[in-house]
Nucleic acid binder design. Structure first.
Lengths: 205, 205
DNA sequence: GTCCACATGTAACTGGTTACATGATTGG
DNA sequence: CCAATCATGTAACCAGTTACATGTGGAC
């Protein structure tokens, strides 16, 4: 149950309409919590009916008409409560890692291209974050709020850094997949070919 | 649609029953794809009805009776196909980062304790991975299959390393949240990182 | 008047979670 | 016989995804 709290946070930072929220979820909020406009409208409805937010007065209640929301005291309280409550980290679920493990069994055909593509994507994301860091968090003036937000951005930067490094390493491994690793003077074959069959079995897990 | 492929991979590595799969998903498979036994049984049923796997002969078809599965050629083909197909990386969704951003607005009460707890959890996970690395991937013997699996484990290790470092840094920041930050000649203390700068409001997103 | 971008929604579906049900086997 | 454990499942729910529907206002 995190999306409503993401929306409350966004609305506290700045009251917005559904579409404005959607845009913000494509930008800064989306760095750590993504959501589509359908999710957002659905959730805005719930939050309003629960008395956590309200539509700003002075607008028409219809389709096609912009409708902005602001957080009510009850919403702020709920967000503060949720923020302070301990939560379990949720286990990792990463498709690329799964594909890599699968490729150890059914062959690596096609993966290398996608590894390269992902590397490119993560590098772009990293530069984008670094841009934002330069623009929004120059060294110097510094409120506690700024520091907290910077901390979050830092996580994004460090995560993208991890992925670019790991993907680079993975690609390097792929280029040397058939070589005997420690033995000097291995033969680079005709590209990383299929790796069929099952290797040493998975017995120790 | 990744869970069926995770199961196909696991079954190719070693034919298993539902409960055995569940155990393996709590261990090595779970490092990058987690699943509960309910999900697994549901998916085993689907995979069998689609002709991707079959129950090993020589057992009773009833509740309480163990039932092992193996992958059929069609299942292997499907896994190979899926593995080779390009996929989009899915955007990050992390509750702790969201809570931190929220805490910049509604206050940091309660979070610090949970940051500490998460740091501990990630440190434990990291040591567990490093144990496994020592045990299963000693330098020397090294098939292409081993290298691919090692690569996946490496991602786990590097990710946990990232989290422990980031959480340590976050805790350091928390201890100095009210101080004026970039005073030259600041005390390094426990924090491994530098202390950055400022940033105005969230208006430009 | 038509087209397009803006803006708000509905509906159906899928995958993951939580709670519970049922039978078999084994040790006391 | 009873309780604990192993083992397989059902059902209800919830969050996120995908596809589609509807209305407004401005540019041409």
């Amino acid at each position: 149950m995190s999306l409503p709290h993401a929306i409350l946070t966004a609305l506290l930072e700045k009251p917005s309409s559904g579409l404005e929220l959607t845009r913000r979820f494509d930008r800064s909020i989306g760095y750590f919590w993504s959501a589509t406009h359908q999710q957002i409208y659905r959730e805005l409805g719930r939050l309003e009916s629960e008395g956590y937010i309200r539509a700003l007065p002075s607008e028409q209640p219809a389709r096609g008409q912009k409708k902005s929301y602001e957080v009510l005291p009850a919403g702020r309280d709920e967000l503060a409560r949720w923020t302070s409550v301990s939560q379990e980290p949720k286990p990792l679920r990463d498709v690329m890692l799964l594909r890599l493990r699968a490729s150890a069994v059914v062959g690596t055909a096609g993966i290398e291209t996608d590894l390269r593509r992902h590397l490119d994507l993560h590098q772009r994301q990293l530069s984008e974050y670094e841009e934002i860091q330069k623009r929004d968090f120059p060294p110097g003036k510094d409120t506690p709020q700024d520091r907290l937000r910077h901390l979050v951005l830092r996580a994004g930067i460090d995560l993208e850094t991890f992925w670019t490094q790991w993907l680079s390493h993975a690609l390097y491994e792929f280029e040397h997949l058939d070589e005997q690793p420690p033995a000097p003077g291995a033969v680079p074959g005709a590209g990383p070919e299929d790796v069929p069959g099952a290797g040493p079995e998975d017995v120790r897990e």
